[in-house]
Amino acid sequence: SDEELKKRIEELVRRGNKDEARKLAENANSDEARKWWEKLEQL
C-alpha cells in the first residue's frame, strides 16, 4: 500500500539512505510515493 511504502521511504531517508529511498519511490510506480520522496528530500 502507499502508506506502507511512504513509511519505508521515510525510514530510509531518516537513516541517511537516500539513494535506496529514491529507488524505492521510483520503482513503486506510485505518484504518491514519488511526491512523498520529493518532499522528504527537501528536508
Rank of each mutant, 00 (worst) to 15 (best):
S1Q: 10
S1F: 15
S1N: 12
S1P: 13
D2R: 08
D2E: 12
D2N: 11
D2P: 08
D2K: 08
D2Y: 13
D2L: 15
E3F: 09
E3L: 12
E3G: 10
E3W: 07
E3I: 11
E3A: 12
E3P: 10
E3M: 12
E3T: 10
E4W: 08
E4T: 08
E4Q: 11
E4K: 08
L5I: 07
L5F: 07
L5T: 05
L5R: 03
K6P: 01
K6N: 06
K6A: 07
K6S: 05
K6L: 14
K6E: 04
K7F: 06
K7L: 08
R8D: 04
R8K: 12
R8C: 12
R8A: 10
R8W: 09
I9C: 04
I9Q: 00
I9T: 02
I9P: 01
I9S: 00
I9W: 02
E10W: 03
E10P: 02
E10L: 14
E10K: 05
E10S: 04
E11W: 00
E11N: 07
E11H: 05
E11I: 02
E11P: 00
E11M: 01
L12M: 08
L12G: 03
V13D: 03
V13N: 04
V13R: 02
V13H: 11
V13F: 12
V13W: 07
R14G: 07
R14V: 08
R14P: 02
R14L: 09
R14F: 00
R14S: 11
R14D: 07
R15K: 13
R15F: 04
R15Q: 14
R15T: 14
R15W: 03
R15N: 14
G16W: 00
G16A: 02
G16H: 05
G16T: 02
N17M: 15
N17D: 13
N17G: 05
N17I: 06
K18A: 11
K18T: 14
K18P: 10
K18I: 15
K18N: 10
K18M: 15
K18E: 07
K18S: 12
K18C: 13
D19L: 05
D19M: 06
D19F: 00
D19P: 03
E20W: 00
E20I: 06
E20S: 04
E20A: 12
E20H: 04
E20M: 08
A21M: 04
A21K: 01
A21P: 01
A21I: 04
R22D: 03
R22Y: 03
R22S: 06
R22E: 04
R22L: 08
R22C: 08
K23S: 10
K23Y: 03
K23Q: 12
K23P: 01
K23I: 11
K23G: 05
K23T: 10
L24V: 09
L24G: 02
L24C: 09
L24M: 08
L24T: 04
A25Y: 04
A25L: 14
A25N: 02
A25D: 01
A25S: 04
A25P: 02
A25R: 01
A25G: 04
E26K: 03
E26Y: 03
E26V: 05
N27R: 09
N27L: 13
N27D: 13
N27A: 13
A28F: 15
A28M: 15
A28R: 04
A28C: 13
A28Q: 06
A28T: 08
N29P: 07
N29D: 13
N29F: 09
N29A: 12
S30R: 03
S30M: 04
S30F: 08
S30L: 06
D31L: 05
D31F: 02
D31K: 06
E32D: 11
E32N: 07
E32A: 11
E32T: 09
E32Q: 08
A33E: 07
A33K: 05
A33S: 06
R34A: 06
R34Q: 12
R34K: 14
R34F: 14
R34N: 11
K35E: 15
K35S: 12
K35G: 13
W36E: 07
W36R: 03
W36G: 04
W37D: 04
W37R: 01
W37V: 12
W37A: 03
E38F: 00
E38G: 00
K39I: 14
K39S: 13
K39F: 13
K39E: 15
K39Y: 15
L40Y: 10
L40I: 10
L40F: 12
E41Q: 15
E41S: 12
E41N: 13
E41H: 08
Q42G: 12
Q42E: 10
L43S: 10
L43A: 11
L43C: 14
